[in-house]
Design a protein around this nucleic acid. Structure first.
Lengths: 252, 252
DNA sequence: CGACATTTTGAGTCAGCTCAATCAGTGTGG
DNA sequence: CCACACTGATTGAGCTGACTCAAAATGTCG
């Protein structure tokens, strides 16, 4: 049914925004002019160390960041100091695209690993939308998919058991990693610690540790260091009630 | 500081889409052509009884619904039968606008009260966006605000205490009701039952009941029948850590 | 090797859950 | 006008999934 997906060499691999172009093309092939318009966006490349914030809650930026390399996450904290992670971000994502239209960030963007990001001025994106209206639509669609993912995340945190919630978060991560050619569906780079996972699932570190052990003992997955191994995808997806439709990755 | 907001008579009050126009104008006044374009959208008006679904998870519609009158909510259920409510909807909202770009509904839309909705064909909205690109931008912005609200909701469910979570949901509801002229900030129509509130906050009915009693005993709010009375807004907002910035309602 | 981050395990506690009644309001038919 | 049905709010009582505190084990890296 599912074959190992080869890492395809892409003509744009050299361009800094190649992972963005590839993501946009998952939905509908871009024509030459559109591709060129994206490629020519003026960008500033920055490196952010692991554990730093890319953007912080309350910031009012005049640019948005595309993640070129590394992993990040959206999060916010309550006064008690508890952190809630609401999404993991990977190469090709523009997690703060909404700052185009909303003046203040309502959450922060942290890094799980050292990240290379491309800062794209809002001005440039606005011009792009004017010149290539279809790209505006495609990027709008991406923000709608993000919103669908927030809803699923909320379902997980609110109504699933600890195992179901963790399982769902892992399923989503692996599915998206597969979509960008970074997982074969059996093994997957896994950049988050159990503490991160706890703040994502709104559970305690100790409970996450025990739930992961249970998932291991059930023969579903195994996490060692930075590598996730999936022993039984069907079983995992079943327990997590994971249905990837909302990610809009097409066929599969 | 805050005065009673008078219910202003609006020139468009007669048109079926008047509450939508008013919502869009909260951000930036529309010019005559834009307003006319919205007013002239072809619509089908439907009445949906209380407790029915307006749209159901998995549906693939070729229209989106604007709520003209009544109250609705976005929800989804897990296999165990537990329901998670993720947002409450009020007149002026188009909760399924995302179905323009995403083929299947990832959640359902239920009603808290009998609702009058205006079904707007996607075709017509697409034409509107083409003729009035600024309206596309304004509606995009609305979906981004929705997404910000999902994030806050997730924070509440994941990281706040029962009282904080319920308080936050109530604060958001009242703030939005004020924005559409349906609350003076002291009293507010309150269309949800404790069961609804439980499914919104991901708590049990019994625990919601006890938390509401606590909020009452703290002298913050009181709910009788369908009326919410706020005795101490400051205290409530403090306990719920509510900051309305994310709703992008401007000034206030 | 030493310092630090991360994972794992044990043990006691508690916020929120479930089950089970009871009470109050609102129709509705006779 | 009352009995009955039904929905929604409230309270009691016992239970449990997940939490916190604490410590040990393991891994990682300069």
């Amino acid at each position: 049914m599912s074959q190992l997906s080869l890492v395809r060499k892409h003509p744009l691999d050299g361009s800094p925004l190649s992972s963005l172009v590839r993501k946009l093309e998952r939905y509908h092939a871009l024509d030459a002019a559109e591709r060129r318009a994206v490629e020519r966006l003026p960008i500033t490349v920055k490196k952010i160390r692991r554990g730093q914030d890319i953007v912080r809650e309350g910031d009012n930026c005049d640019f948005s960041c595309m993640i070129m390399e590394g992993f990040a996450f959206r999060y916010s904290m309550v006064e008690s100091g508890k952190r809630q992670i609401m999404a993991f971000c990977m190469p090709g994502d523009i997690p703060d695209l909404q700052s185009m239209a909303l003046d203040k960030m309502d959450h922060s963007l942290g890094t799980l690993r050292a990240c290379t990001v491309a800062e794209i001025p809002h001005r440039a994106i606005r011009d792009l939308f004017e010149a290539q209206p279809r790209l505006a639509e495609v990027l709008w669609r991406e923000t709608l998919i993000d919103a669908a993912a927030f809803r699923k995340w909320l379902m997980s945190v609110g109504r699933r058991s600890a195992i179901g919630c963790i399982g769902h978060i892992i399923c989503e991560f692996v599915t998206r990693m597969k979509a960008i050619g970074r997982s074969d569906g059996i093994t997957c780079e896994f950049p988050m610690t159990q503490t991160d996972l706890a703040d994502a699932a709104a559970l305690s570190l100790v409970h996450v540790n025990r739930s992961l052990r249970e998932l291991r003992e059930l023969g579903l997955i195994n996490i060692t260091g930075n590598l996730l191994t999936i022993h039984d995808w069907e079983g995992l997806a079943l327990r997590a009630e994971f249905d990837p439709t909302y990610l809009q990755l097409g066929g599969d």
